[in-house]
Structures are given as C-alpha cells and as structure tokens.
C-alpha cells in the first residue's frame, strides 16, 4: 500500500479516503500481534502524553484508549469533566489550549456536541482523536467493527451489512455507514420509522423496517444499543415491543439457514435489542470486537502522532 498518513487528527470516517481507512486497518493488524505477546508493549510512543478528555460517561472506549496508549508506551492522563474546571465554566477551546500548554501530544475526546472534535482540532496544533461527538461520528468504533468483519470474512467489498436499531441518534451507525460504503459493502439500516433519520438514503444505504427480511440477506448485523438515556423514553414507551419486533433472537437466527455475524458496540441491553442467547452464542463476535478495539486504537494513536510530526516538520521547513 502506497498511501501515506499525513493527518494530525482522526475526526471521522467521512473525510477519509478508502486507502486511508485501509492503511489504519493494515496497521491495526500488525498491532494486534503486540497484544498476544508476554510483554504487551512496544516503545513507539515512548515519551508522548495522551490525554483522555471525556465530557460524557464512557468506560469501555476510555479504557480501550488507555490500554492502547499504554501498550505503545505513552503516558496517559484521564480527565473526567465532572471533576474538572469545565464545571467552573471553562470553554472547550480553553481546556484544549491548557492541555496543549502542558505539552501533551494527543487529546482523545468524547463530547456530547456534534462537531466538537473538529472544532478543537482546528484550534490546536496537537492531535485530536474523536472518541464520539454527539450524534455525528465515532470513528474508532466503526473501524474496529470493520476490522472485526474483515478478520472474520476476509473482505469488506461486496458484503451485505445490516445496522439495526436507533440509527437516528447513533454516531456508531453514521461512522459505520461512511466506512463500509467507502470500502464497497452494501449497507442496510433497519429500525422503526421514527428511529431512521430523514434522507439517510443519501448516504448510500438501503432502508428497511422488516428485520426478518434484512437478516435473510445479511452477512453481518451490527446491533445498536437502544439509547434510552438519550431520548428519555420518548420513542419507545414499551421496550418489550421493540424486542418483539426488532430484537435479535435465537428464533430469528435459527430461521436463517446460513452463517451470520452478530456485532454490538456495547454496552448490551440484554432482552431489549438482543437476547442473551444470541449475545453469548456462536454468531456473536462482541468480545472479539473489544479485543480488536485495542489494536485499532493503537494504530490510530500511532498514525496521528506521525501525522503531527510531519505537519510540524513542514511548518519549520517553510
């Protein structure tokens, strides 16, 4: 692959080329081997500092980034905004500039506003990695989903991938759609009408409201979490109703006379979007996704650090 990574940030998959996504996946493949060693550490980011800046609660993404950074020998600082000066009214840009002034190298940020990561990246010289911004994008989650799919099925081109659940409020869905369509997969989103955003077809996906029909053609299904904490129970007064009509169950899968891969970004709502039998069953790759997340995030941290070095070098050369 001749692609060169020259971006200091990873903000989303929308603005990446097919080759750039391919480069991240190929780099992640190499990093996966590191986690299988007895000494699970390489010195690639020794002496660099990674700051996890999370404006929304998150355990798995934050821990995954922390583990990834530590396996690259970086120093990691976690800032939970509930206990920081953000509570005293500091703006995002000011927080970012202070972190930059501390000579940190990479900010990994989750924020509840769409576009927050891009805004911060523009204001800073250090790298910004988007760990989820509002309903916009969650690029590393999509990358690890795609990585897992590729590992399982050997390719992305030509696959039928279904994304089921709250598409309207899901940054995971949006990043997956960008990534998968760029790599040549056919994507179908499936949910009750009120959870499908208007004009989603323009992203190059099919829309369906019939889960059994979607499962019939799908090579893989990405089951999204019903985000009850986001809509305050507006969309779904009855959680069981959703399970009945859209939940991924053993009965639904046993009707298919074929293999299918079931993914879920976590955390699981067992008995709402997925049954326990399926989540723990043979089709599920949910825990492999978690393992692959480390390799993907190592690759991303490594590449943005390189991209930052390059952009600095060009500046001094001018």
């Amino acid at each position: 692959m001749s692609t060169v990574w020259d971006k200091k940030d990873l903000l989303g998959l929308e603005n990446l080329s097919k080759d750039e996504i391919g480069l991240i996946l190929a780099t992640a493949e190499s990093f996966k081997e590191v986690s299988s060693r007895e000494i699970k550490k390489v010195p690639a980011l020794r002496g660099r500092t990674v700051v996890n800046l999370f404006y929304e609660p998150s355990t798995r993404t934050r821990v995954s980034f922390e583990v990834a950074a530590k396996r690259l020998s970086a120093d990691v600082i976690n800032i939970a905004t509930e206990t920081s000066s953000v509570k005293k009214g500091e703006t995002l840009i000011d927080t970012g500039k202070n972190i930059q002034a501390l000579k940190a190298d990479i900010i990994v940020m989750r924020h509840n506003y769409s576009g927050a990561a891009a805004m911060l990246a523009r204001a800073l010289e250090i790298s910004v990695v988007n760990a989820g911004d509002g309903w916009h994008e969650h690029p590393t989650q999509a990358l690890l989903d795609i990585f897992t799919l590729k590992e399982k099925l050997g390719r992305i081109q030509g696959l039928n991938v279904a994304i089921v659940g709250d598409i309207a409020h899901s940054r995971v869905a949006r990043s997956n759609i960008w990534g998968l369509t760029k790599l040549g997969a056919k994507v179908t989103v499936c949910a009750p009408p009120m959870l499908i955003p208007v004009a989603i077809e323009e992203m190059g996906v099919n829309v369906s409201h019939d889960i059994d029909d979607v499962l019939k053609d799908a090579d893989a299904v990405n089951v999204l979490r019903m985000q009850f904490e986001r809509d305050g129970g507006q969309a779904f007064p009855e959680q069981l109703e959703y399970f009945k009509n859209f939940g991924i169950t053993k009965e639904r899968l046993s009707k298919l006379k074929k293999d299918i891969i079931i993914m879920h970004p976590g955390p699981l709502n067992r008995g709402i979007e997925i049954s326990s039998e399926v989540a723990d069953g043979k089709h599920s790759v949910i825990l492999e996704q978690v393992t692959n997340g480390i390799a993907v995030r190592m690759a991303v941290l490594f590449l943005v650090a390189q991209g930052q070095d390059k952009s600095k070098k060009y500046e001094t050369a001018d």
């Binding site: 692959m1 190929a26 190499s30 690639a44 390189q306 070095d309 070098k313």
Partner: peptide, 22 residues
C-alpha cells in the same frame, strides 16, 4: 522481525513506513 515500532528515527522518515507484523 518488524522493527518499525522500535526505531529512533520514525519522525525522520517522510513516507511513514507501514507497520508490519513480527
């Protein structure tokens, strides 16, 4: 052995070598 992650001159290499597997 792939030594990309152990190099001391990563930032000097403009092309950014692809990290490959050991």
């Amino acid at each position: 052995l792939d030594i990309t992650l152990y190099r001391d001159d990563l930032t000097l290499i403009a092309s950014g070598p692809l990290v490959r597997k050991t």
